[in-house]
Design a protein around this nucleic acid. Sequence first.
DNA 1: ATGACGGAAGTTTTCCGA
Length: 261
Amino acid sequence: MKVASWNVNSLNVRLPHLNTWLAAAMPDIVALQETKLEDGKFPVEAIAALGYQCAFSGQKTYNGVALLARQPLRDVVTDIPGLTDPQRRILAATVGDPAAPSQQLRIINLYVVNGQSVGSEKFAYKLDWLAKVRDFLAAELQRYPQMIVLGDFNIAPDDRDVHDPAAWHEQILCSSAERAALAQLHALGLHDSFRLFEQEPGLYSWWDYRMGAHRRNLGLRIDLILVSDALRARCRSATIDREPRRWERASDHTPVLVELA
DNA sequence: ATGACGGAAGTTTTCCGA
């Protein structure tokens, strides 16, 4: 089973890219972020034509998350305790046989708050948001041992994930406070699948549109797929598909994937 | 020098992203 995450930076603009990529990569489940679409405008029919059912939680202009799956998505959650948040950034759903709860896979799609700059109001909000999400994930893990938490985390886990660690030192996406918040998710038994297989630096999932950053590989790895202890043993590969970032009118993020046994 | 590039709203410019 292939599970993927992709920040599409407007599904309206990127629907043709998604179409092409789904046909080529053939994932079973895809988490999308920054759909920037109100629910009434979600392209349910176009996605169905590609062979996927969908769940979505969106809003105009900003944010917006969606899950696409070849199987039915059940027990959808879009809001969590403690966050009365109009920003659509969270989408949880379950796949698998309802009669066999222990074999169900819980999928939690996150578009983590950007945070703007260290010390800003938005930064404080990011840390608070992450703390609430951690509590939610802890509760979810009690119910669903097989869990995958994926999305745009807006945190580069360590300096291997940053093209210029000196320039980014204690900057937004790389600060110790953000990395500590990510470490708290790891402490729940949620592992960065990419680092189960790959230790090299210089492998990124996002490149700025400006300054020819992609051509020069000036990027960050901020799109992550975390797997629970129970899922870790089923994890066969974790990769970044850089191809869609090369396409005309690309998203600034490229898809990341895991393959589960 | 805080620029650039791209998307969205909506109108000639602003906000936001990472």
